[in-house]
Design a protein around this nucleic acid. Sequence first.
DNA 1: ATCTTATGTTCGCCATATCGAACATACAAC
DNA 2: GTTGTATGTTCGATATGGCGAACATAAGAT
Lengths: 182, 182
Amino acid sequence: MTPNDLIASAIKRERKRVGLSLSALATQSGLAKSTMSQLEAGKGNPSIETLWAIAAALGVPFASLFEVNKPDTTLVRANEGMTLSADQSCFQTTLLANCLPGTRRDIYRADLEPEEERTSPAHPLGTIEHVIICAGQARIGPTEAVEVLNAGDYYRYPADRPHIYEALQSGTQIIVIMETRD
Amino acid sequence: MTPNDLIASAIKRERKRVGLSLSALATQSGLAKSTMSQLEAGKGNPSIETLWAIAAALGVPFASLFEVNKPDTTLVRANEGMTLSADQSCFQTTLLANCLPGTRRDIYRADLEPEEERTSPAHPLGTIEHVIICAGQARIGPTEAVEVLNAGDYYRYPADRPHIYEALQSGTQIIVIMETRD
DNA sequence: ATCTTATGTTCGCCATATCGAACATACAAC
DNA sequence: GTTGTATGTTCGATATGGCGAACATAAGAT
């Protein structure tokens, strides 16, 4: 996954999300249509200023702040068992102000009970999970690097391989921040 | 704050952190010394590939993963009162793999009790705080946009103005992720 | 003192990212 | 059908980012 490809897909995705045409984004950002075209095609090696302009045109810098996500928390049953409350669209992308690739972070809060060991299959390559233990104790991590974590611990690992969540105490609570790049 | 300045300071800071000289970083990244010099001077408008190379040389892409932060948690008394356990260097910067400016995220876990309303002074411009309520209920946010949040809620707001943390229930636990850009 | 070996800076040259215009489409309107 | 207005692409020309060499400057070594 070369940077150009990352940029390419990120820009295109964000542009679509905002609902702009390639030409429109070009004029809004003050760049040439041709440049936009090449970037989205994966050719080209944009400079910071170019990206900055695009990000600004997409409305990132400090817009899209101030959003509260009350848990309208669609309850999600992930990998047949673990009950997750997913606050969607948290940490929304913001391309460059919050940075470059179309990084997207989703927050999950999970209540775990012992003997409910859950394995999560491999997420897309490049996915990273940040886990914070709020309460209790748990064994967490990629199968080849499981760690015993206590309340307050923080663990970060590549999630592009199978990984485990297993509570060691009743009432264990964890927060998982999943970074995808898509 | 132009992108160039962001890059400039970010690169210099990270380079210092790793303990590399300008020339050393240049050779490691496969770039010319001159280029590095100009970038750190704030002149120049680097391309993605250039930044990518620098980030790689600084050891980010998938290095520095797999780090466990057991709470050696230096206990910090922030703004005269609130007891924070600071897991340092969490979400370490990663410049470009995790993105561009020298974004740095620190995680704080705070246990709040009612009648302990804490106000935090304005952090540097551009600072963003992400708050997740683990347990209880609290009034949190910038003074002009305080929100009542319950367990599971997520709130993100600019932290470059004074803001408040006030528990409404006993045993309220929150997690604060502070994004600085410096 | 001189001779290294590091530091980071400033130059001219070349490759290339960006531009603007011309080019293809496609889809309406009429 | 033709004309108009979107879409996104491909061209040559040009501005500029990146390179290497030469340049300072500092800190040791002998």
